[in-house]
Simulated scan of single mutants.
Amino acid sequence: MTRTGVNHDIAEAHGYEVRVDENGIEYPIKKGGVSTNNRVSGTCGWSWVYLTAVDTNKHYTTIDTGFELATGFAGAIYVNWGVGVIDNYGSSTKTWNDPAASVHYWHKGKGFTSSGPGWVTADVLYGSVATLYDGTICYSHGPTASAYL
């Protein structure tokens, strides 16, 4: 047998939502389930975001985000990056405005504490960009991560 896609109506009727992975392939996931869309590729390379639960009793996690440029691209000399975080208690944005030394790999992290138990979702914001040494501007395609704290 060969997989040909996802019927959105049937997925929705059975408590699933349809998401798209880094290769553009649709997949069903239980509503509220953990996404596998942590790493998304594009013409410039890959960007990612991960949540790592550090202390679930205190509802604390680390947010790890970054990118890797594809072979042949000039290094990034400036990064303007944002991750939006949403939980049951509100939302916040973590930002980085970072001059870089012509890097092909950029990785940063910040902590996040939720006000209580529940699901947390982090999304690299559209508009998160890396400006390259040759003037090229590369933007993230918005990877997302979820975790229960």
Rank of each mutant, 00 (worst) to 15 (best):
T4W: 08
N7S: 05
N7P: 00
N7R: 11
H8C: 08
H8K: 14
D9W: 04
D9G: 11
D9C: 00
D9T: 12
E12Y: 09
H14A: 08
H14D: 02
H14G: 02
H14V: 09
G15R: 09
Y16A: 14
Y16Q: 12
E17W: 08
E17A: 11
V18S: 04
V18Y: 02
V20C: 07
E22F: 10
E22K: 14
G24V: 11
I25G: 05
E26Q: 13
E26V: 07
Y27Q: 04
Y27P: 04
Y27A: 07
Y27R: 04
Y27V: 03
I29W: 03
I29Q: 10
K30E: 11
K31G: 12
K31Y: 13
K31A: 15
G33I: 12
G33T: 13
V34R: 06
V34M: 06
V34S: 06
V34K: 12
S35H: 03
T36R: 15
T36E: 11
N37A: 14
N38I: 02
R39T: 13
V40S: 08
S41R: 15
G42M: 07
G42V: 01
C44Y: 15
C44L: 11
G45N: 08
W46H: 15
S47C: 12
S47V: 04
W48L: 09
Y50P: 08
Y50M: 13
Y50L: 14
L51D: 05
L51V: 11
A53S: 13
A53N: 13
T56P: 03
T56K: 14
T56R: 13
T56N: 10
N57S: 14
K58W: 03
H59K: 10
H59L: 01
Y60P: 01
Y60C: 02
Y60R: 15
Y60G: 02
T61Y: 07
T62K: 06
T62C: 00
T62W: 03
I63H: 05
I63Y: 05
I63F: 06
D64W: 02
D64M: 05
D64V: 11
G66P: 11
F67E: 04
E68M: 11
L69N: 04
T71G: 08
T71W: 01
G72Y: 00
G72S: 00
A74M: 01
G75Y: 05
A76K: 10
Y78L: 13
Y78S: 14
V79Y: 00
N80P: 00
N80M: 02
W81Y: 15
G82H: 01
G82V: 00
V83P: 09
V83L: 09
G84I: 08
V85Q: 06
I86Y: 01
N88Y: 09
Y89M: 06
Y89Q: 08
